[in-house]
Each structure stands twice: as structure tokens, then as C-alpha cells.
Amino acid sequence: MADTILKVEGINVYYGNIHAIKDVSFEVKEGEIVTLIGANGAGKSTVLKTISGMLRSKTGSIEFMGSSLMRMAPNNIVKNGIAHVPEGRRVFAHLTVEENLEMGAYTQPRSGIRDDMEQVFSRFERLRERRRQIAGTLSGGEQQMLAMGRGLMSRPKLMMLDEPSMGLAPILVDQIFEIIKELNDNGTTILLVEQNAQMALSIADRGYVLETGYITMSGTGEELASSDDIRKAYLGA
């Protein structure tokens, strides 16, 4: 049985008076792909932001490989091995592809950057072709690849991807999910937030369904994909 590397227990997150996350608990085991699915505004991104330290939970605990993240600063959480690829392809639009990747290695010693970048380029050949291009001029799919590549540069043990399929053409969505699977095969644990429930469940080991701040269901990818409630609510069947 694989070890649990991320354990979230009873977190409650507020935006001012709005109670966005209500008593959410879940865990991610080493080597898994775990997905959080749910509709707009269910709180998926909020959960990721809380794990990476951009938001704080008022209660509960978040443990990553034995250390508590509850009070850890975001930069130290990155150093500890969690990469957060935020929603909406937030690349540094005025920097080149290479410079974006260098930023991703911000917490890493200088010596390994060249090798790591080579690895990213071997995974995303498109980025190699465009290494000197200004990131803002890349296509949507390329920017998503760049955002993921940037996340990889910090040598994460756990990678959190926030809606990597958002706004991409179906063929690109397939590519991105293919890459996520490859990353996972190479040993990176993945926490994936998606609205595209069908795709997410098809590659996930386990999934959690988030509805208006509560986790309402959980199970293996197949279980959830075949559940009637899920099919009605998210898969349009």
C-alpha cells in the first residue's frame, strides 16, 4: 500500500463572510492521480490555493509528507515539493519561454537548471522550438504546456493542476491529459482539478466530487464515472 503524502482534514476556508470550503477532508497517496471534480464555484480552486498557502483554512490540518502546511509560507511550500499550476495559464507574458522556466526553478539550486530545462523540453518539444519566444505570444495550448513545464522545474513530488483543459481545443485536451499520465508514470503524484469530469475520471485513480464547498462523493475513477448521479450531473448522460 502506498504512503499517503498529502492529508487534508476538516478544512474550512472563508472569503470574508462567504464560507467557501466546508469541512473538506481527503488524501492523496504517493504515485496516484487524484481528481477533484465539480461545477463552477464548487470550491475546487480554493482547495488548491489553500494547500499551496495562498489562502488559509480556519480549522483542520493539512499535512504533506509529515510536515504541516497550515502556517507555512507559499514559497516554503514550493520548496517542500508541491508545484501549483494555477488556473488560466498564468505565464509571465513578457518573459521568454526560457525565462519562464527559469522562474519555475526559482527555489532550486542554479546547477540543475540546465538539465531540468532539457527534461522539460524533451517532454514538450513545442517549447524547445519556441524557447526564445515571448510567452504571451504562444497559443493557448502552448501556454498551458509552459505553465506545466514551469511547475516541473521546481522538481515537485506533488503537482497540483488547476483546470489544465480550460479553453483548449479537444485535440489539445487529449494531449495535455496524455502528458499528465506520462508525468504520473514517471513518478510525480498528481492532484488534478477539472470541470471536464469525463476526461479527469478516465485517467484518475481516485476522485472526489465537490459541491458548494462540501465533498459529496468519493471513489475510484471508474466507480465515479459509472455512478448515476455523476453521469447526470457532470457527464451529460
Binding site: 499551496s52 495562498m54 498564468r90 513578457h94 522562474m103 521546481s154
Partner: peptide, 21 residues
């Protein structure tokens, strides 16, 4: 300097790269 510029470019991305904002 690169860290400071990255904050101007995109605060959330800088945060997620581990820049101490």
C-alpha cells in the same frame, strides 16, 4: 531582480513559483 519583475508580470504565478511576495 527577476523575482521583483515576476511579481509585476503576474503575482499569482510568481507566488506559485515560490517567490516570497
Amino acid at each position: 531582480g527577476r523575482a521583483i519583475l515576476s511579481i509585476r508580470e503576474n503575482e499569482i504565478a510568481a507566488d506559485s513559483c515560490g517567490v516570497n511576495l
